[in-house]
Amino acid sequence: MSDTSPDPESFEAFRQSFSYGSRSNLDFKFLKSLPDDEAAAFIEVVLDRISDAYDTGDIEPILDAAYRAQIAGYTPAPGAPESPHTYDTAPFTPMSMPAAASTIGLITSSGHFVIGDDPRPFGVVEMTQAEAESRISEFLRETPVVSEIPADTPAEDLMVRHGGYDVASTIRDRNVTLPMDRLAEGVAAGVVGALTDTFFSFPGATSQGRLKRELPAWLDRFEREQADAFLLVPV
């Protein structure tokens, strides 16, 4: 009698499956980058803390374990090759007046757009979030499209699609990645002087080279907003 059972899944394959694999979960795709022992320790800690939470009701230690593992997963290991996107100096333009008297613009890489103004990546009409995730490698080679979002756009008129992160939180509350309402409240509270008429968003998982070639045209569009300063929010 032959043994037809499949080979057991390795732990390495298990942790890698969270990164666009059979168990894809963009909150935990960092497991692909953790060494086996660190990934195993993370899972062990989370399970222990869940056991504690049964009694305490306190989930903060669980969230903290995920937060720390995520940092470990994304931070380059010592001796890792230097990123080509490394600079020796930082540009700096001083503020001409306090933020409380300034007009502030907003640019995010969250992938928001106004309904009716879908950037239609790859020509696809109404691409789903699931398809965006499944085509992440194509997005990473593609020219990004920046969407214009009028500052008074109601939440129900916005959509978000981005193959690189879990958009569930920002669907529930756009301010998680696109803090339009908080900025408007900031104006009312005197924290911000005024807002530009239009905000901008694009899916940040994109070709860096193509993005840089788009920047002169993007800058022309940003400058038309006559912002005194920009708030930028990557995801």
């Binding site: 963009l26 998680v176 929010v233």
Partner: peptide, 10 residues
């Protein structure tokens, strides 16, 4: 955590 730079939903 990643994907929630400004704060949690709500």
């Amino acid at each position: 955590p990643m994907g929630r730079p400004v704060g949690a939903a709500g």
